[in-house]
Design a protein around this nucleic acid. Sequence first.
DNA 1: TTATTATATGAGTATAATTGAATATAATAA
DNA 2: TTATTATATTCAATTATACTCATATAATAA
Lengths: 127, 127
Amino acid sequence: MNLIEVFKAIGDENRIRILNLLIKEELCVCEIETVLDITQSNASRHLNKLKSAGIIISYKKAQWVYYQIDANFKDRYNLLYQFLESEISKNPQCIKDTERLCKYKNSSFTCEQLREDKSQVLEYLKG
Amino acid sequence: MNLIEVFKAIGDENRIRILNLLIKEELCVCEIETVLDITQSNASRHLNKLKSAGIIISYKKAQWVYYQIDANFKDRYNLLYQFLESEISKNPQCIKDTERLCKYKNSSFTCEQLREDKSQVLEYLKG
DNA sequence: TTATTATATGAGTATAATTGAATATAATAA
DNA sequence: TTATTATATTCAATTATACTCATATAATAA
């Protein structure tokens, strides 16, 4: 966990968007790519950068990989985390993303649904 | 002052080093380039990035341009500023830079001296 | 005025970061 | 076992960033 690496990791729109979601709750890669509407490889890459910087951690459940904010990061870089939590919620793109996340969470869709028909979920989140 | 732009601006070694100095006190470009031992154009460019991001401001005194932390930034992004102030002092490179800054400040060298013989000042700071 | 000088900027180059498409890997399901 | 699938990774292309050298600009000094 290096100061410059952490700032570099946070200083990117896609990664800020991912952090915005993970601050709310842990999510698996397929959920993140769906809510943010970005490609799978792109989501995976950005998650890896955040993980390398020590901001998030991951664990496997069945075939899915779940990501969440690293408690050590919250603890060790607490002021930064508090700042991020507070400011990220004011970012226009993050506000939209949060709405999409809530919509997804309030629906009955699951990772299995995403596998079977992702376009259906995307259509639901759009309308 | 945009969140991502601010993080991008801070996420660079030379700019972190500059911020470390400016957190201690306002400095002009020729002092920054001397203490950090970087080229003039490089210092100027990084200062401009920090200024564009809304982190620092500048004013002219005679032929010198002095930079300092923007009070609005300190105020508006207070948690981030506090975090930065606290963490930056633990960075190995910044610790060395701070020593050089103190050495420079404790000497009788001025911007005029830097003009007349910069290499002499650099030699003093090295030894 | 001209000379000097502190800083900023332009052009070119080198390096790093981001991306999509395709493929590899590791796990589950049949 | 083989087929499927979620995620990670590689490759190639693009874009962004950082750096150096040279020059422009704006101010002071003579």
